[in-house]
């Protein structure tokens, strides 16, 4: 087990290096020259040259890449080119809101999807099943933007149930006041496709022979579903959750933007607009590491759920 984790961590190094190379190349090719943006209206050659020296852009590309490697190794990405704030400071203050939104979103979405999927699978073919399937299909065909705008207009502006927009200071204020609306909209968007996928996982398992054995033992239907079927259905569901994570991150960028949540998503949009390479680098690298760690966790989770899985 330990040797497996060590090996997996070891394998992350080449992946990370690949991402760094890709990011660096892309930025060099299409990132534009930040010195023009920073120089503003005083576009004299000297100003630009001095800004370039300051930022290290006058160094050769291999040298710049080496600096990047050093930054990743020390996890110190310097200061933002546009605001002069330390990058670590930006990430530290922005990560909280993002994690709060993503985590609550993922957990609520998982909870409701599993609930719907298990019940729909159990009553397969009934009117309830068909209704959920139809509603899911309709819900899936509508863009997230429509949900956001409609949610803000009806639930916040018309009904006055939530603030339309904004973010506060205290944890509970944010959690109880500002998170609910984006959360409801997020869950509404992700529950539909997840329910349909999980439903098929449950139905697949319900047709297995061991379900017949469980019934022949005299177990109640609830026990059959929630103990025997659920645990086996979770195996593909874990994969689903892990592979949906990148999409959720994209989704949360949109959410942060529309609801004025000062998270990493908002920050990355700002950084891209101003060619703020240190911030882009830092957020991308942290994201890549997070996704790799989640994948490792998923594999360990598999082993825990399904003893047949061999870690190698």
């Amino acid at each position: 087990m330990l040797s497996y984790i060590v090996r997996r961590l070891w394998q992350m190094i080449p992946t990370l290096l690949g991402v760094m190379l890709l990011l660096f190349t892309l930025y060099t090719l299409v990132g534009g020259d930040p010195s023009y943006i920073l120089a503003g209206k005083s576009l004299s050659a000297e100003t630009i040259a001095s800004i370039r020296t300051q930022l290290g852009l006058d160094k050769s590309l291999p040298e710049q890449f080496l600096i990047f490697v050093k930054q990743v190794l020390t996890m110190n990405f310097g200061t933002s080119w546009s605001t002069q704030q330390p990058v670590s400071e930006i990430i530290r203050t922005r990560i909280g809101p993002s994690v709060m939104l993503l985590l609550t979103w993922q957990l609520c979405s998982l909870f409701f999807s599993l609930l719907f999927a298990a019940s729909v699978a159990y009553y397969k073919g009934s009117i309830y099943d068909r209704a959920v399937t139809i509603i899911s299909t309709v819900a899936m065909s509508i863009s997230i933007l429509v949900y956001i705008i409609a949610g803000q207009y009806f639930l916040a502006y018309k009904m006055q149930w939530f603030p339309v927009y904004g973010w506060g200071n205290g944890f509970w204020q944010n959690f109880l006041l500002y998170i609910p609306l984006p959360l409801i909209i997020g869950v509404a968007v992700s529950v539909a496709p997840d329910t349909r996928f999980y439903r098929s996982c449950f139905i697949e398992e319900m047709n297995q022979d061991y379900v017949r054995t469980a019934r022949a033992k005299g177990l109640s239907e609830r026990k059959v579903m929630l103990k025997h079927v659920m645990r086996n259905a979770l195996i593909p569901i874990v994969t689903g959750v892990m592979s949906s994570l990148p999409y959720m991150i994209t989704g949360s960028v949109l959410m942060e933007r529309f609801f004025g949540i000062p998270g990493l998503g908002n920050e990355i949009l700002k950084a891209v607009n101003s060619s703020d390479f240190p911030v882009i680098k830092a957020i991308t690298i942290y994201l890549v590491i997070a996704i790799m760690v989640f994948n490792l966790l998923a594999d360990l989770l598999y082993k825990w759920i399904d003893p047949r899985v061999k870690l190698n």
Partner: peptide, 25 residues
């Protein structure tokens, strides 16, 4: 009553023991 009958008074074994046992317990 049926649940008490099944597994209690009437028990059953099947053709394919591998798939008849739950793999994760």
């Amino acid at each position: 009553e049926l649940r008490r009958l099944r597994g209690g008074d009437i028990a059953m074994i099947f053709q394919d023991p591998m798939s008849s046992l739950n793999p994760v317990f």
